[in-house]
Structure formats: structure tokens, C-alpha cells
Design a protein around this nucleic acid. Structure first.
Lengths: 362, 362
DNA sequence: AGGAAATTTGTGTGCGCACACACACCTTGT
DNA sequence: ACAAGGTGTGTGTGCGCACACAAATTTCCT
């Protein structure tokens, strides 16, 4: 009769079995105060043996300690990609707040590697339980993470990974797979067009070469066609358009490119397909190219709605943020073991399967 | 100073404000025991005014009452569609179990309208807090639901809805939208084929006309082509194959059909595309038709993996079950207000975006 | 040996709630 | 008038845990 029925193991049951008081067990569980080695060992053994799982409700109810999270993500304007993970983070915090958790978040943003590093160090100065961040560049990330590690602050990487970094977890996507998926769609849809097909890959980014995801998507896309030995049927051209700040200039740019001939498909690797869609709309082509891009930001959704964008791929950007907060809580509060990588699903959206709640807000 | 900080309203705060004891407030909240009208009214007013939200953790911790759910779904064998919602239900129960909830589930299955009705009535005989079910046929559902209603048992419909039935919530899909999505893919992929395109719609079901979802998918599919005025470019043929129990017979059937000419695309409206895929594989066509179907059951996943199936659409079957349990708990335990309809997303799967954990198990 | 200090262990309180119980106050009927 | 039965209300206990505090035990030093 170790414990009461319902095979719910309690601290009290452990204490009884170990022949000590619940206070001692408590100390072992929380690693606070001093417990003699033999007793500690014995208790840990019993905990494992009985597969003790703390009662979450009781724990949250009794604990007054708030959880403080540092959030370190790229800065963004309304309607831009990074709004989505942030939204997920916000929703998660709200939800856990309702559940009785006290969660403080310190949000810092960056728009350069230096700011990234500085902000990260600033987070360390605060009394923080864990960090959710998107790594800017390899060099800065590594040095920053070293400090996190020395100060024993767990951190989660979201959206893009840096290999070999000892994060609590990586939550994000596989950009190569993204590229492959876009390639599959492009291939299927264009394969019956007679003759050699032309596909453009457009990057709208000031620093494409620093953004791994963009490069990886592009190479995934290429990989598909080379794996299938389609080089003779398809010709690819990549355009890096660094300055897309003015839609008018972009329009002209695109028009000039198109004057050489209209491609069969265009793949925009970043999140700004809608800009290309807008440019194309103005040209009033009777048979426009297949247009595929990424991410469920508002203007892209509108583009899918009016069919100026054919397909949108997304990697559950919002859910990444949500999961990051949830994972932190699972690790810190519940002390659960966390999977090293949590890969998001790759969702294909087109007008017909766009959730109605998304279509309406546009 | 109504209550303590952290603006967490407690029963005690309500009691203080109402000038009574927590016992009385408790009685009002749970509608048990007798409370004089004026006091009751006053307390309810204060509850609304303060926007009191019970502390879930404390509630679960203190409550010993188990939650008993009746589950009434079609019977199934391993690898069939209904395994997925059931899996979701199981996962949800396990998860809430871990969280300290005590949940009993009474599972009953049916494979005929009569069994459906009988099983439903049997559930009523047990002491059940709520019911999760998939309605078999209109007539039986209506009479059954009447009994549920009279006995004040809340019920959730999953997968398919019956209009005008006062369910707590409907959790499922929009089959017309499914059909539209498949049509979009089919159209996009075949549109560049010269001449008139042939598409087959295949139903593998013994009682297609009784299953609304199948009919609705088919009509959604048709609707797309008629909305876009594509009647001249496309010809559709529907094949209802009632007996598909033997793969060999099916193979012969398909071979015979194909001897008249190979279609450009085949859409299988049920969950058994893999059977068609298997038949096609044996024929070794050098240019097989585009093959699209539904649902992430094991054999379909394998088909996508070896590219004998091109696309799979799914409506988050597993999540439907999960959400049903969660919704029941939210309603009964938390007394939250529930959305009348919870529509699932429509996911498009192909080899390239199939989650790796699904590919591996095949 | 005899304390003081350090180490180890035990006890008590409260988190917010559900629920059983006790209590007070009214009706009735005899 | 007194018991018996409502009707309305207040109090106490415990759920499993965290955490502050008290107590017991050992170690060390003169």
C-alpha cells in the first residue's frame, strides 16, 4: 500500500518509501538545500522506479514564482513575416496566463548582427529563465550562445538552425524540403507545356547570401530538377533584386525582364511574392506565369485570394512561436525532456483550401 | 482592495463583495443546493462584472469527479480512416490523464444505422457526461439526438455534420471545399495537355449515396470546372465500384476500363486511393494518369512515398478526435462557451512535403 | 566535555477550489 | 408548545505541491 489508488504517485508516497519526510524529497526534486548523499541517491532511485510525475495543477497552484522569458527576434513591420512567430508567442503567453501561470516576456529585436549580439547580452543582464531567439549570423550566434551556456540559461532557436549549437531545441523548418515541394508543384504544372520550359527564381532580399533559408530553398528547388534529370526540359534563371522598396521601380524592373520573354513559372524564395504579383497584375498578361511563393502574410493571402498568386508554401510560422513558449514551459516548469528538433509541417495553400478565417480578414 | 494583486479574481473575492461566504458563491457557481433569489442574482451579477474565471489548476486539483465520455464512431479495421480520429481521441485522453484529469471513455462502434441508434441509446443508459459521435444517417441521428437532448447530455458531432441538429459543436471538414481543392490541382496540372482532357472520378464504396461527404466532394470537384466554364476542355466520367474487396477483381475491373483509353487524371473520393494505385502499378503504364485521393492512412502514405499516388488531401482526421475530447472538457469542466463549428484545415500532401515521421513508419 | 556552528531533516502554511458537514432560521403539523 | 421538516447559509477539510521555518543531528573547536 505505498500510495493511494488511481496510481498517482505523490511526493508523499516517495517520502514514505524512502523513510524520510516530504521536505527532503522536495529538496532533492528541486535541487535546493542540502541532502546527504545516500538519502539523495535513494530518493532519486525511487523517483525513477516509481516513474514519479509531478502533478502539474498542484505545482502551478502552489508556485508563486513567475517565469521570465527573453525573446530575441528580428524587428518587423506590420504584415511582415516575423509578425507571425511573434503572434504565436503572444497567443501562447496569453493562454498560459489564463491557466494561472505568471509569465513575463522581455522582447528585444534586432536588425543587424551587432544589435543581435548586444541585445542578447542585455537579456543576460536581466534575470531570465530562458531565451527564445532567431540566430542572426553564425559568428555572433556562437559567441552569444557561449555566454548563455556559461550562465546556464536555456535557449531555443526558432525558424532557422545553426548546426552544432547546444540549444534546448530547434523549432523550425527544412528549407531544402520547401524548395523541393515548390519544385514538385512547378514541375507537375508545367510539364505538359511543349518545348523547353523557363522558370525564374526571384530573390527579393538585400542580403540574400547571408540568409541561409533563401539559399537552401533555392538549392532544394534546383535539386529536384537535377535529381529528375530534367535539365534538358527546363532552364532556370535566378534574379536577385536587392532594391524592391519602391513598387514602381520594381514594376519597371520586372517589365524589362519580361520583355525578353515570359517564363512559365516564377518562384519567389522570400516572403514577398505579393510584390511580384502586383507587378505582374499591372502588365495584364493574358497567360501569366505560374507564381509560387512563401508565407501567409496578409498581402500574400490577398494575392492568393485574387489568384494573382497560385500557390503559397508555409512552414507554420505562427505555430513556431507558440511551440517555442510551450517548449520552454515544458522544460523549465515540468522539467520534461525536450526533443532536440521540432520540425514544422510544410503546408501548401491555394485559393481553394485557404482557411476561411484567413480569407475574410483580407 | 477587493482582492489580492495579480488581478486574479477568486471565489473569496466574490464572496467578500457580495457579503456572503464562499460556500454560497460555490453553490451559485455549481447550481447546487438552495440559494435565495436576491443573493443568487447579486452573486451572478458580481461574477459577470468581475469577469470571474475559475482557476483551472485549483479546480482540477480539488475535484475528484471523473469525466465519463461516450464515444460512438463507425467500426474500423487497422489502417482504415476511422483509426485516425480514434487515435486523436486516445491521445487527448492520455494527455489529460497526465494532467491529472480522470477521464473514462465508453467506446461503442457501429456499422449500420440500426446499430448506431442502439449503441447511442445504450450510452444513455450509462452515466455519461457527454457524447462524441459521428452521425450515421439523418433519420437515426435525429431520433437519437432527441433523447440526448431530453436527458440533457451534450454531444459533439465529428467528421460529418447534420444541419439543424443542436450539437454542442461540430468538428470536421467542408467536403465541397475538398472537392474544389482537388479540382484546382487537377486542372492546373492537366491544363497544358493539348486537346480535350479526360478525368475519372472513382468511388469505392458500397453505399456511396448514403455518404454525404463522398457526394459533396464529387460535386465540389464538378463545381470547380463548371464555375470556370471548362466543360469544353474537360470530360468527366464517374465510376462507382461497389465491390472492391478483392484487389484482383479490382485490378481486372480497372484494366478493362483503361482499355478504352487512359484518362489524364483520376480522383478517388473515398480514402482508398491506394487500391487504385496498386491496380495501376501492375499495368506498368509509361505515362500514368495523375492520381489524387484523400486521407493519411498508412497505405496511402506508402503510395505517396513511392509516387504511385501524386497528391493526398486530408482534413486533419486525427486532430478532429483530439479536439472533440478537448472541446468536451472545455465545455464541461471549464464551462467555456464553445464555437458551434470548428472547421479543420485542408492539407495537401505530396512526396516532397510529407512529414518525415510519417514516411518512416511506412 | 561543552558548547557554537554547520549540516541535515521535519513541520506548517497556503495556493483556489469542491464538497461534506454543521448550523441557523423558518415553516408546518399535532 | 414542541418536534419534524424544510430552506438558506457558514465552516472545515483536503487535493499535491512549494517554500519558509523550526527542529534534530552531526561536526568542529577550545
Amino acid at each position: 500500500m505505498g500510495h493511494k489508488d488511481g496510481n498517482q504517485i505523490r511526493i508523499k508516497d516517495i517520502a514514505t518509501k524512502a523513510g524520510c519526510s516530504i521536505g527532503t524529497v522536495d529538496r532533492v526534486i528541486h535541487n535546493r538545500g542540502k541532502v546527504s548523499e545516500p538519502v539523495k541517491k535513494r530518493i532519486l532511485e525511487i523517483i525513477r522506479e516509481l516513474d514519479y510525475k509531478p502533478n502539474v495543477n498542484a505545482r502551478v497552484l502552489a508556485s508563486k514564482r513567475p517565469l521570465t522569458l527573453g525573446i530575441l527576434l528580428p524587428s518587423f513591420r506590420k504584415g511582415e513575416y516575423w509578425e507571425l512567430p511573434n503572434l504565436g508567442i503572444k497567443e501562447a503567453i496569453e493562454r498560459y496566463d489564463e491557466q494561472g501561470y505568471k509569465i513575463n516576456a522581455i522582447h528585444l529585436t534586432y536588425n543587424s548582427p551587432e544589435m543581435f549580439y548586444k541585445a542578447g547580452m542585455k537579456l543576460l543582464a536581466n534575470d531570465i529563465d530562458g531565451i527564445i531567439m532567431n540566430p542572426a549570423t553564425f559568428k555572433e550566434s556562437v559567441t552569444l550562445v557561449r555566454s548563455f551556456f556559461q550562465n546556464n540559461k536555456p535557449f531555443i532557436l526558432i525558424d532557422s538552425d545553426i548546426n552544432g549549437i547546444p540549444s534546448l531545441s530547434f523549432i523550425g523548418k527544412d528549407p531544402v524540403q520547401s524548395g523541393l515541394t515548390v519544385a514538385k508543384l512547378s514541375h507537375q504544372i508545367t510539364k505538359h507545356i511543349p518545348g523547353k520550359k523557363n522558370i525564374w527564381i526571384i530573390n527579393l532580399s538585400k542580403r540574400k547570401n547571408q540568409i541561409y533559408a533563401l539559399l537552401a530553398r533555392e538549392s532544394g528547388f534546383m535539386k529536384y530538377f537535377s535529381d529528375k534529370q530534367l535539365q534538358n526540359d527546363y532552364s532556370m534563371i535566378t534574379f536577385d533584386i536587392e532594391d524592391h522598396s519602391s513598387q514602381k521601380m520594381l514594376d519597371e524592373h520586372i517589365e524589362k525582364l519580361l520583355s525578353q520573354g515570359i517564363p512559365n513559372a516564377i518562384y519567389v524564395t522570400g516572403s514577398r511574392v505579393y510584390k511580384i504579383a502586383n507587378s505582374l497584375k499591372k502588365l495584364n498578361l493574358d497567360q501569366g506565369p505560374l507564381l509560387i511563393g512563401h508565407d501567409l502574410i496578409e498581402e500574400n493571402i490577398a494575392g492568393v485570394k485574387d489568384e494573382s498568386i497560385d500557390f503559397l508554401i508555409e512552414e507554420e510560422a505562427k505555430r513556431q512561436g507558440y511551440l517555442a513558449v510551450e517548449t520552454m514551459i515544458r522544460s523549465i516548469v515540468y522539467k520534461e525532456k525536450i526533443e532536440k528538433k521540432q520540425m514544422m509541417n510544410l503546408l501548401i495553400y491555394t485559393k481553394e483550401n485557404m482557411p476561411s478565417y484567413l480569407l475574410k480578414q483580407g
